[in-house]
Design a binder for these strands. Structure first.
Lengths: 243, 243
DNA sequence: CCAAAAGTGTTACAAGTACACCCATGT
DNA sequence: ACATGGGTGTACTTGTAACACTTTTGG
């Protein structure tokens, strides 16, 4: 209302560039390590800091396409899960906001991704090569990326408990122990008793026995299971907790 | 990589205006009606269509501040819950994307709000006055706002099941029936047996008896309860389902 | 034969579901 | 007194948590 009294004080609309920043997780099941993809910045601001892989959205490009592009520029991966995370946009979150142009703002739409570690191929050419980092040893990141990462990690844990994203990222055939290790590395050692985890998962009925067995050194060979999309679809309405 | 071969084909970064669109819900407990706040557009594009209340983010303004501003321009409300919903930004989602300027994009960061119906005061001056609509009878909205609304409604239902937002929006003192009605109008008639709902809520221990009773016509007077923040804080880690 | 890994079973308890029933008030 | 809305109790089923146990392999 009061904005229209004087044309000269009518507040002006901000101009934005929109960045997409990706929180890309991967689980190295062999070594029980939860990994996060980071890139080292080579120019200001925050030169020599690590940051989340990101890019500015281009003309004619959708947000998700920008997220996908970042992924494919850094790693070659076939199997992944991708979803939007959160949008950060306070004035001043990017130092470039202040610099030359008072009206130029930078907004970050963050995306969350979980990729299959085994068939991930890091692209090491170019001057912004990406590397896997242990999540536990994440350094101080550029911009507000530590905050974005925290948010992404929270989402990862929630998603794992309430939806079947693990199966997008495990091998086609996997043992129940593989699955358990996967959950353990993300959610921590004591998220559930193995025996109860087994029982719950098998009772749900969307894991089908492939008939194949795999032997890992000594001990009884493990049954290989496969995720059955169709069987899962039948229960998609009900809670489904893996705790 | 290939972007650097020819400077002339280097893809260019898009310029954005950022809009904030609000999905504002309110529950009229007296009449068991779930309401959504809409405004009628008076100019192109989509003149005379209803749309979600929104605004463009101004210089120096945060996203959440813009959401708050929209709320306070349309309604006067003291008690509310507000959180970010999702960001929509495909090229072409706003007809203005194409129009004059090929590079100008419009991005929408949507916010979800739940406000207390009783102390809400619609501002009816100005040419974009807001009105409550029955959610069930939502008309076709401008832009992609029906999609945003659907997304917001989903979030409302989830939030109600897993977090105590209802108490931000109910009167200070309320009966268990008020609470039950609230849940019923949002989640549908058969979301839970009243007796079991009562038992579950009371067992959780964050509803404290005010000692006051209220009589609604015939029948036994109902106990007024109050939400105890501190008692609730103690259980904030564990699931908490109101189903 | 024994250690290691996989897989099964048991038991005690907590929570969820569907009811039937009792209580306090206005007319 | 009885209809009306508020509130309690119970019996049954299901889920959870902790743990002991059996099976099948390699060395």
């Amino acid at each position: 209302m009061e904005n229209y009294k004087l044309a000269s004080v009518k507040p002006s609309v901000a101009e934005f560039k929109v960045g997409v920043d990706n929180v890309i997780f991967s689980v190295d099941t062999q070594h029980n390590r939860l990994l996060i993809l980071l890139v080292k910045r080579y120019k200001e601001p925050y030169a020599n800091y690590f940051s989340l892989p990101g890019t500015l959205v281009r003309v004619g490009e959708s947000l998700e396409a920008a997220a996908d592009r970042t992924l494919s520029e850094k790693i070659e991966v076939e199997n992944l899960y991708l979803e939007q995370l959160y949008t950060f946009g306070e004035p001043g979150r990017d130092p470039r906001d202040q610099k030359n142009n008072q009206d130029q703002r930078y907004l970050s739409v963050s995306y969350f991704a979980l990729v299959r570690y085994e068939d991930t191929n890091l692209i090491t050419t170019g001057n912004r090569k990406a590397v896997w980092h242990l999540l536990k040893e994440t350094p101080q990141l550029a911009f507000d990326h530590n905050r974005i990462l925290d948010y992404g990690y929270q989402r990862l844990r929630n998603k794992l408990e309430y939806s079947p994203i693990a199966f997008k990222v495990l091998p086609e055939a996997f043992t129940l122990n593989d699955l358990y290790q996967f959950y353990t590395t993300v959610l921590g050692e004591h998220f559930s008793d193995y025996s109860n985890f087994r029982a719950r998962l098998l009772k749900l009925g969307f894991l089908t026995d492939t008939g194949l067995k795999v032997s890992r050194g000594a001990g009884r060979p493990a049954t290989l299971y496969r995720f059955d999309e169709d069987a899962f679809a039948l229960l998609k309405d009900k809670p489904l907790v893996f705790i």
